[in-house]
Amino acid sequence: MEHSKSVLILGGSGQAGASTAALLRRWHPELPLTIAGRDLGRAQRVADELGAADAVTIDLRRGDLGLPGGRSHSAVVATVWDSRLNGLRYAQDHGLPYLSISSGLMDLTPEVIAGAQRTTAAPILLASHCLAGLVVLAALDAAREFAHVETVHMAAVLDEQDAGGPAAIEDMERLMAVSMAGLVRRDGVFTWIGGAEAEAVEVACADGVVLPGQRVAIPDVPSVALATGAPNVHFDLAAGESTSRRRGGPPSIEFRIDIEGTSPAGTPLTTTRHLTHPEGQRPLTALGITLGIEHLLGLHGPLPTPGLHTPESLIDPTYATTRMTEIGTLPITP
């Protein structure tokens, strides 16, 4: 991969995009970056702070993204919703790796079809999972001690003051407007649930406070279910006051993974991973995106083949959890 060409970050001046760019700059100081946004002044300020970066305006309604002619890039990263798939088409037309994070489970169908129609164009990383795939990777890392996984229960608490920037809020409102149904795997069958079964859910915080939540339709469910073979998988999400903010601190995020199954010796085995980041979802989402970019560009591991990928198909779970610790993710102990 030619790393003299820049990574084009769509929405690069937003919270997820700017934080991703900062992390990439820290880990890969020589990697050129292009901060693309609707407001050139805002994008330029982010680029100036990074160094080895430039800024452009984009128009996601246009097939050429409104980019100046003669530009070349090494990858396209959509940290905002690529609603018309023009970012994806641009990447395919130019043979560039592509990563997206803002598609709901139902929105993934057009991306999958676009990728299936042009399987040799370039690798496409579908990372519209919680924290761009980090919960899935943490679950798979925890599942490595099992010979057989029967149940995986995932849950996350997002502080209501940590919903992200305007684009993230729009994404959340859009996804909730499409469906309040949840997706679970039950006895090996992927099942849509609604009503009280999806909405009358409680999620416990680290300090024991219980928040109302919802059993959500999210790519984490099929990713974990198919990667582990677990016949029973669900993901619960709650938004409210986080443990950190109740203690007078900033909004934090926490997520919990409970796994049941059998050990290599054939005995019953259970494990729990309960993790938090004191700065909320932003640094973890940025990390998930950054890990994806690293792998798409061959900066960590071999270059991926063209076609469709998910975070767990590219990124080693142990490497991901190590990086999570490095950026300040902390375990929550009972």
Rank of each mutant, 00 (worst) to 15 (best):
M154Y: 11
A139Y: 10
P268A: 06
H28M: 07
T109G: 07
E312D: 15
A91T: 08
L24S: 05
R26F: 08
S179H: 08
T271F: 00
W81H: 13
E111C: 12
M180F: 06
I169Q: 14
W81M: 07
R273T: 15
M1R: 08
D64V: 04
A168N: 15
Q44Y: 02
P283G: 08
I293V: 15
A177N: 15
R61G: 13
P304I: 01
I124H: 01
I289L: 05
S4D: 15
Q117I: 03
F255A: 01
T151W: 03
A163W: 12
G66M: 12
C130I: 15
I257C: 05
A78M: 03
T151L: 11
A121Q: 08
H73V: 06
T243E: 14
A286K: 04
T79K: 01
T262D: 08
T243F: 04
P110H: 09
L330W: 03
L275H: 10
P212Q: 07
E30L: 13
A204Q: 11
G292S: 04
G12W: 02
A53R: 10
A155R: 09
I253W: 10
E2T: 13
A47W: 03
R144M: 11
T305W: 00
A116P: 03
R247K: 10
R62F: 04
R256P: 02
P123R: 03
E326A: 15
G328P: 03
P110I: 06
Q281S: 15
P68C: 02
T20E: 10
D39H: 15
A139R: 11
L10D: 12
H94L: 13
L330D: 04
L65W: 03
L50S: 08
L105N: 08
A53Q: 09
R84C: 05
H300V: 11
H148Y: 10
V136R: 00
H3A: 09
L33H: 08
V224H: 12
S179F: 08
S128D: 09
F235V: 06
L291F: 08
L10T: 09
L330N: 06
L33S: 06
T272N: 06
E279S: 13
E279G: 09
G115F: 05
L33C: 07
A196Y: 02
G41M: 13
T318N: 09
Q214E: 15
G292H: 00
L303S: 09
I257L: 12
S263M: 00
L8E: 01
V56L: 14
R185K: 14
P231D: 05
Y319T: 14
Y90L: 11
E170C: 06
P123G: 10
T329L: 12
T109N: 10
V112F: 10
G66H: 11
E199H: 13
D258V: 14
A168L: 11
